[in-house]
Structure formats: C-alpha cells, structure tokens
C-alpha cells in the first residue's frame, strides 16, 4: 500500500513538470501603468522603535522600482536625516548612491529591487543628562526619472471638408491615465483645424513626491542636507520630446522655458503643441509620443525613541 502511494505521488509530480511545456512568453500589453517610480520602505525593526544609547544604530531600507523608467545612474542617492549627528554618529551627510534598478518592461513585469544600509552609533545620553531622545528619521530619495506616454490620436487634415464618406476617426480627447511613473500625462485633447492640429497635453504629478528640474545640479540640491530647491526649481518637468508619428513637434510646444521645462501649478500643467500641415486629406489615427524628464524626491519617515542605558 505504501509503495503504491509513493509511486502515485511520483507520477503526479512528473505530470506537473511535463505540462509546463515551452510556452512562448507573450509581451504584456499596456505595461506602462501605475503612478509610482521608486518605492522606499524601512525594513522591519531596522531601526527598532525603541533603542538604547551606546548601541549601534542600524537602518536598512528597501528600494524597488515600481515604474517603467530606470533609476540609479550614480547621482541618484538615498539620504537619511532628521536626527542630531552629535547624538547619532557615524552616518554621513552625502547619502548612498542608488543602485541601478531597471524599470518594468513588456517582458519583465517587476522592476529592480535592492536594499541599502546605514550603520551609526548612539552616544551616551546619561552623560548629557538626557532622559529621552525622540528623533523622526527621514529617508529621502533623490533621482532622475522619465515618463513615456503613448496615445493614439486622430488627425484630421480638413475637418470641415464636405464629404459623406465614412471617417476613420474624429479628433477628440484621449485619456492616457498614468504611464508607470510619478509624473503622468493624464489626457490629450485634440483640436483640429484646416491646415493644423493642436494638441493640449495635460501633465500631472501623481506620485506623491516633489518634482523638480531635470539636471545633476538640481539633483544635488535635492539633498536634505542642502538648503533646498528654490521656488523656481520645484514643480518643473522637462519636455524632452513630443513626436507625432516620426515627426517631432517639440519646437511648437508652449509654454516651455529656455531649458525646455514646463512649470506645474498645484502639481498640474498643460503643454500646447501644434502639427502644421498634416499629410493627407482624410482623418487618420497616428501615435503621439510624449517624453518627459525630471528629478523626483520622495521621503518616508520613522519615529524612534532612544533611552539612556543605566
């Protein structure tokens, strides 16, 4: 009886192995979704909610790329702050470089994941006659990111043409949702006129963090140990390109400043671009490709209580 059960078990196990087969992996359509870039979390108990002085102070953070852009080019960094460096020593103010974390693709449905650790020491509180020290530990990630939005838009070279033929499409607003990045192109409105088509591209910061100008100089200013980004550096995204089919129409886009940045107000903004003299006589569908580049800052917090050890 026992032998027959074992044989049956082995047979069932083998059948499961054989049935997996060699299915071809199909690309995931619509992988550009979601409104997050980098996800940062404190690992449980690192640091613990209550620690004692003269103990090591260990902080470990997990970073995961939930978006479709790439993170970690050497200048992207993670900082911890919010505490007195005289009381918790050994933790620098330069931060730690973020490792290279690839974004999601149509073939890989999960982005890169890694952990970063900080090790410090708590000085004696008894000597300073301090009964309790309660800092709020902040972890701040400063990184470059990119949003690539694709929308199928209808271009009508002659919207007022008197014709009774069936139209392929009618120029109308296209909802694009989010694209796997913290800054999203939420929708595109299409306004057709004879000889030109205007696109109103709505952009919004949906990630919950702060967006700032694209560039290494601004990335350095993002550090919590820096006086901070100025009002004319925050809430800007760089319009890297706007392409309709293979034609770039970025030069027609407004309002963009000299460095190609669009200012967001209350986290949202609009770009107005034009396609002059579209080809053909009849309406047609064509892809509109929008690329935005920007710096992004995210912060999480964890309270800690430090007591003197008698």
């Amino acid at each position: 009886m026992r032998k027959s059960v074992i044989v049956l078990f082995v047979v069932l196990l083998s059948c499961t192995q054989f049935n997996t087969g060699t299915e071809q992996k199909q690309p995931t359509t619509g992988y550009r979704t979601g409104s997050q870039g980098l996800l940062i979390t404190f690992l449980p108990n690192l640091p613990p909610p209550r620690v004692f002085d003269r103990d090591p102070f260990n902080v470990v953070l997990q970073v995961e790329n939930l978006g479709t852009g790439r993170v970690g080019n050497g200048l992207d960094r993670l900082y911890i702050s919010g505490f007195d460096h005289n009381l918790i020593t050994g933790i620098g103010t330069d931060g730690i470089p973020l490792p290279l974390l690839e974004g999601r693709t149509q073939y890989i449905n999960r982005g890169g994941l890694d952990t970063l650790s900080y090790r410090g020491t708590i000085r004696s509180l008894t000597e300073k006659r301090i009964d309790k020290y309660q800092p709020l530990i902040l972890a701040t990630a400063c990184y470059h990111y990119e949003t690539i939005a694709n929308a199928q838009v209808c271009v009508d070279p002659d919207p007022y043409a008197p014709t009774s033929t069936a139209r392929v499409c009618t120029p109308t607003a296209v909802g694009t949702g989010s694209q796997g990045a913290p800054v999203a192109v939420t929708n595109v409105q299409v306004d057709a006129a004879p000889g030109w088509t205007r696109f109103t591209i709505n952009v919004q910061n949906v990630g919950g963090g702060s967006v700032f100008r694209n560039g290494n100089h601004y990335l350095a200013k993002c550090s919590p140990y820096n006086p901070g980004l100025a009002f004319d550096e925050l809430d800007f995204v760089q319009v890297a390109d706007v392409m309709i089919s293979d034609t770039s129409i970025k030069s027609s886009c407004k309002p963009i400043d000299s460095s190609g940045h669009l200012r967001l107000q209350n986290g949202a903004g609009q770009i107005f671009c034009e396609l002059n003299a579209p080809q053909g006589q009849t309406p047609y569908l064509t892809p509109l490709n929008i690329v935005l580049k920007y710096g992004y800052r995210q912060t999480i917090a964890k309270p800690v209580e430090i007591y003197p050890l008698s």
């Binding site: 709020l136 530990i137 901070g228 980004l229 917090a301």
Partner: peptide, 12 residues
C-alpha cells in the same frame, strides 16, 4: 530647521 525648500519633508 535651515531648510528653505517649502516642499521638502521635514522631521520637525
């Protein structure tokens, strides 16, 4: 608090 960034998260 030496930070002048109005949007920066602060620990206090």
């Amino acid at each position: 608090d030496p930070t002048r960034d109005p949007q920066a998260a602060r620990s206090c």
